[in-house]
Nucleic acid binder design. Sequence first.
DNA 1: ACTAACATGTAATCTGTTACATGATTGA
DNA 2: TCAATCATGTAACAGATTACATGTTAGT
Lengths: 175, 175
Amino acid sequence: MLALAVLGFLAEEPLHAYELRRRISDLMGHARPVSDGALYPALNRLLKAGLLDRRAEESGTGPTRQVFTLTPSGREELLRRLAEPSEIEISDGSSFFTLLAFLGHLPEPAAQARVLRRRLDFLTTPASFFHEDGRPLRAADVTDRYRRGMLVMARAQSKAERDWLTSELAELDRS
Amino acid sequence: MLALAVLGFLAEEPLHAYELRRRISDLMGHARPVSDGALYPALNRLLKAGLLDRRAEESGTGPTRQVFTLTPSGREELLRRLAEPSEIEISDGSSFFTLLAFLGHLPEPAAQARVLRRRLDFLTTPASFFHEDGRPLRAADVTDRYRRGMLVMARAQSKAERDWLTSELAELDRS
DNA sequence: ACTAACATGTAATCTGTTACATGATTGA
DNA sequence: TCAATCATGTAACAGATTACATGTTAGT
């Protein structure tokens, strides 16, 4: 997930670690902040895998900035990950959102549409939070007010997302 | 997170690991399935910490079931975690949802309200996904269609949740 | 005969968090 | 003077994923 965000942002322009952290923080870090202990090792892993290049840049002030650039192989990896997301990247809302932020990098609209379609299919498949005696509980049968709230909000969110996906897919079809 | 769900479900009734896994899967596992490699070690940690008791129960068929029960100390820990959630449990949507599923176990409505209030405060504080030249981009200025979609959906969700929280808090105040 | 569901666990590996460690610059 | 922001990293630890390992029962 962190790796995807790194590749995605570097696909737009070369950045040093600190600036990368800020952008990733804005994107995903409302919830959990991006820690240095995650970012720097991740950058080194990507570097070792040949997906990134690093060059030192004197900034005048403070430590030398380490500026990272996406290699051609890194761009391939990004496009592959965007075009063929894993099941969890489709089903987990926050992972999917990260994907969405970079989906525009996929050159073919048809490839973008395939990803949106997968998400729509996932959201359209009904799922149930709570069970009793092995059978799913309908919303009306959930007595706990907070669990009822969960169902209400999950539905509202799913509806909003399905509507958006549907209209976006329709627009992609037209072009 | 896994630990909270274990404590929460066991607060309702004793369960064996497999059944626990099913319930946790229903609750949080739409996205990522609960793996045995996470669940069994987590149960052993809680056991060692004295929050759970385990007893073997012959099921006739297959391996002996390991039935887990919440100890008094486990219940205390659950209530403490529900009453005083960490910042990330408040700000991360999926963590907060897990919390919500068990919030009803808190005996005092005022303690429940404090948690809801914290979430509402978090949602009311404006946050921005994207920045340009250090300043937050307004939705209208986001040109990428998918990023615009992210903003639209994030707003819809936030609104739905704030509405629900507000009405729930009003009801708690009345009683 | 095969698949899914039931039922429990371990081991290697990966990733992330938290804390540590350093040091300059800018604004209140 | 004190806090925040800029800027880079390491080390210990916690937690999760994936794959391995085993075996029964019920349904197709």
